[in-house]
Amino acid sequence: MSSPKVEIIESYCKGCSICVEFCPTDVFEMDGFLAKVVRPEACTKCMQCELRCPDFAVKVH
């Protein structure tokens, strides 16, 4: 299985930090006012981030 690809569409992200808080493996961190993918290798594809992002900004492939 190839490692999952986590993508943040920066033009949609409003920096609410929901993905940072609810990711169980701390894939995201806040970078100023935007969320940033810092540990993509830790992603388990639980899809919590994509499910909860209110701004359609997180995609897990």
Binding site: Y12, C16, C53, P54, D55
Partner: peptide
């Protein structure tokens, strides 16, 4: 149409999904 008008963290986007 995106990004939508709702504020950062507003749950309306979650409900729309």
């Amino acid at each position: 149409k995106l990004p939508h008008i709702w504020c950062p963290g507003c749950g309306h986007g979650i409900v729309m999904k």
